[in-house]
């Protein structure tokens, strides 16, 4: 008898407790920046594509849902000719972000990706590229890679000596 009354009291009390659910989609929560949601491709501080098509994200992807083809522009920069993520397969594990050596691929706190048609979950590079550097503001891979690209000759990158003159024998 007592336990029944106690149960009624507990249920009644919950009617006035603080609510953890929100009225989604009218009301929205703020996710942590570390939330592993929709994947984006970011850009360098100077506005160029960060992805160099190294294929590490696609290799590490446990469901193999990233397909890339590398290409090289006349400026000497590598970029993905296409970068396709099949989000109907993606499990948002974040391995791609961990593997990315240029901080290009990042997971964002956006979970609203539901689509009525599965085909619409196939994202191409145009759908993935954002206009800023995302979570990593300063990093510029080509400044450190030692490669010659348009606007940066050999030895002009960070922490690099000027090119060696192989014809000299001076110590």
């Amino acid at each position: 008898m007592l336990s029944i009354l106690r149960t009624i009291w507990t249920v009644f009390r919950h009617g006035f407790a603080r609510r953890f659910t929100v009225q989604y989609p009218e009301q929205k929560r703020t996710y942590s920046p570390r939330w592993r949601g929709r994947i984006i491709l970011s850009r360098d501080p100077d506005g160029q594509e960060r992805c160099v098509a190294c294929h590490l994200c696609s290799a590490v992807c446990p469901v193999d849902c990233i397909a890339i083809q590398a290409a090289e522009g006349p400026d000497g920069r590598r970029y993905p000719e296409f970068f396709r993520i099949n989000f109907s397969r993606c499990i948002f594990c974040g391995f791609c972000e961990e593997a990315c050596p240029t901080c290009a691929i990042q997971l964002t706190p956006d979970a609203e990706m539901a689509e009525p048609i599965r085909q619409s979950l196939v994202y191409e590079k145009e759908d993935l590229l954002i206009s800023g550097p995302g979570k990593v503001p300063g990093y510029n891979f080509y400044r450190r890679a030692g490669l010659e690209i348009a606007g940066q000759a050999k030895g002009e990158g960070e922490n690099q000596k000027p090119p060696v003159d192989p014809k000299t024998l001076l110590p």
């Binding site: 696609s58 992807c61 849902c65 990233i66 397969r89 085909q119 196939v122």
Partner: peptide
């Protein structure tokens, strides 16, 4: 065994 893109390489044609 590390072959990548199995579920995405033809996804643009058919998911």
């Amino acid at each position: 065994h590390r072959y990548s893109g199995r579920t995405a390489m033809t996804a643009h044609i058919d998911v």
